[in-house]
Design a protein around this nucleic acid. Structure first.
Lengths: 140, 140
DNA sequence: TATTGTTATACTCTATAACTATA
DNA sequence: TATAGTTATAGAGTATAACAATA
């Protein structure tokens, strides 16, 4: 009756990783969602609609998320001159520092989670997971 | 500048799995958290404190979560006769049905996510992930 | 007309602190 | 005293529907 399938293992892994966001965020007095937002913005600034798609949220939910992040001084809305409806969400200087630090910590925690697996296994795992998430690591 | 590390891949994987819970939950008119709660209870009934540890939540947060799940008729609090402080959270009949169905759907969605990887790779992945999450699959 | 983003509203989720009841 | 769970409170997260401004 014990469930030992691959799917269940991945679900468990995902839960552990999610908790990393919560723990790291706490160190910076950020919520898990704000931490995720900041890490995402390290990949570049984008508009509200793009971000809501990337995070799987409604646009109206993004408004609140960005409002609170802005109030904390980690992001800023910059109005686009070409399309005056659009807003570009950018990291502030403080936001960049926190985002870098948080990203580094998330990576550290996840590495600790992975533990000491053999380099061969590690490479296989990396390749397989990238295959699953759909953006395979470029052959180096 | 593109981040192709294993840690980043796992973070993405976690986000995809989280979304699966949200999507599946929606089909049953459950929130992602309620869906997770129900799936967890398929493993057996437990007390509030145990559950809060398992989910990484405060006990007071559990109270609310269980309140709402109870109001929906999917779980029930059963008082322990030996320790009259303790409450055992159980799935109702309807809760069991929904939990089974939701668990099946979650598995299906995750399987779809995994896609068509070779059986060999699949087995390797399964073994590696169970090693990481700490409850290795029994050698069958 | 379609799109971008916001507002209004109503829940759910979560934590902290203080509490009750039982052990 | 310690533990199991709840309540009170406050804030964060989220969705739906209706809206404003711009394209």
């Amino acid at each position: 009756m014990e469930d030992t399938t691959l799917a269940t293992a991945l679900v468990r892994l995902a839960q552990l990783v999610s908790r990393v966001y919560a723990e790291v965020g706490k160190e910076f007095e950020l919520t898990p969602q704000q931490t995720q937002l900041l890490c995402m913005l390290l990949g570049g600034s984008t508009g509200m609609t793009d971000m809501s798609r990337a995070l799987g949220l409604e646009r109206s939910s993004m408004t609140g998320l960005v409002d609170r992040a802005e109030r904390r001084g980690v992001v800023a809305r910059v109005r686009d001159q070409r399309d005056r409806r659009a807003a570009c969400i950018e990291l502030t200087e403080q936001g960049k520092e926190i985002a870098y630090a948080a990203h580094r910590k998330v990576t550290e925690h996840v590495e600790k989670l992975i533990g000491d697996i053999a380099p061969d296994d590690r490479e296989r795992l990396e390749h397989l997971v990238w295959t699953i998430v759909g953006t395979p690591a470029p052959r180096s």
